[in-house]
Amino acid sequence: MSDFLTEIDKYLDDTMSSEEKKAFEDRLRTDSFLAEELKLQKDIRLIYEDKEWIQGNKSVLRSKHAKELNSFLKSEEAFSLQKTIKEVILEQQDTNSRNRTFYFVGIAAVLVVLIVISFFINSENKYDQLYSQYIQLDSLPSLVTRGEQDTQLIIKGQMYFEDQKYEEAIRAFSEYRNSITSKSIEPSVYVYTGISYIELRDFENALKQFELLSKSNTLHSKKANWYRAMVYLKQNNDKELRNTLQLILSNVENYNFQEALELVNKIDK
């Protein structure tokens, strides 16, 4: 390795004597090349040293994703990646070619970013997969057997819903609700409308539908917390998801108690 790179390593590792450190820092004030190389080596270390990743605002480490990422960075997979990056960088340092060093630093940085992005995508996919598993669309009550005057609007809404035309379904169900008194509204319409909003990622309006369901004064009102949990699951809102699941688990008689218990166990894995 070139002498100046050896010096930089010793400086960053704090293994210089006080005299060597003073002389090195004096050179930094007048040698722009050495100063730039020192900055470059600091950036390189940011790529493969775990301890540097957590400097700055420590509050970000309190989030669930940050804790998961920190755990990943300590894993064998991350360690192997960092070791490979370090070996490539050190090999290129021996060539004493700054351009080649910059090139491989760029590659290393891209690799790290891709790994981190992949980690978060996989984490989010976990919640999406659980949502698909637990939304239980197959168990939704059919609305097409109703014999009321407004049944055509309900049938239209359900057909749109099953065709995944969620905006049209919402409009049909809204027209249905506006055509009759609130006391006679079929409560399952709130479920269909709420899920339609979830699929459109309009979580605020989805929650409003399930709030109406909870106030419907029917047996279906007991399902409201479960569907609220589905909103938070799709939203990847871990805090509210856990809070809502705990409400369901507070009483074994609550709707989908067993499913809520299973879901808690799966999101904890």
Rank of each mutant, 00 (worst) to 15 (best):
S2P: 10
T6D: 07
D9S: 03
K10C: 00
Y11N: 02
L12M: 09
T15H: 01
M16R: 02
S17L: 05
F24R: 00
E25M: 03
D26I: 13
R27C: 02
R29D: 07
S32H: 05
E37T: 06
K39N: 03
K39P: 01
K42V: 14
I47Q: 01
Y48C: 01
E49H: 13
E52W: 07
G56H: 03
N57C: 08
R62P: 00
H65F: 11
S71W: 09
F72N: 04
L73Q: 07
L73N: 05
K74S: 07
K74N: 05
S80Q: 15
Q82H: 14
T84M: 12
T84K: 14
I85L: 09
K86Y: 09
K86M: 14
L90D: 12
Q93P: 00
Q93H: 02
R98T: 14
Y103H: 04
F104Q: 04
I107N: 12
A109Q: 11
F120S: 04
N122M: 15
N122R: 11
E124D: 11
Q129E: 10
Y131H: 05
Q133P: 08
Q136R: 14
L137R: 12
D138S: 12
L140H: 05
P141Y: 12
S142V: 06
E148D: 13
Q158Y: 06
F161N: 03
D163K: 12
K165C: 08
K165V: 10
Y166H: 05
Y166W: 11
Y190G: 02
S196R: 00
R201C: 07
F203M: 01
N205K: 08
A206Y: 00
F210N: 01
E211N: 14
L213M: 10
S216T: 07
S216A: 10
S221E: 12
A224I: 02
W226T: 01
R228G: 07
M230C: 07
Y232L: 05
K234R: 10
D238I: 07
E240F: 09
N243C: 05
T244Q: 03
T244L: 06
L245P: 01
Q246R: 14
L247I: 11
I248C: 00
L249K: 08
S250V: 02
S250R: 01
N251S: 05
E253R: 12
N256Q: 12
F257W: 04
Q258G: 09
E259V: 05
E262I: 06
N265L: 15
K266A: 03
D268V: 02
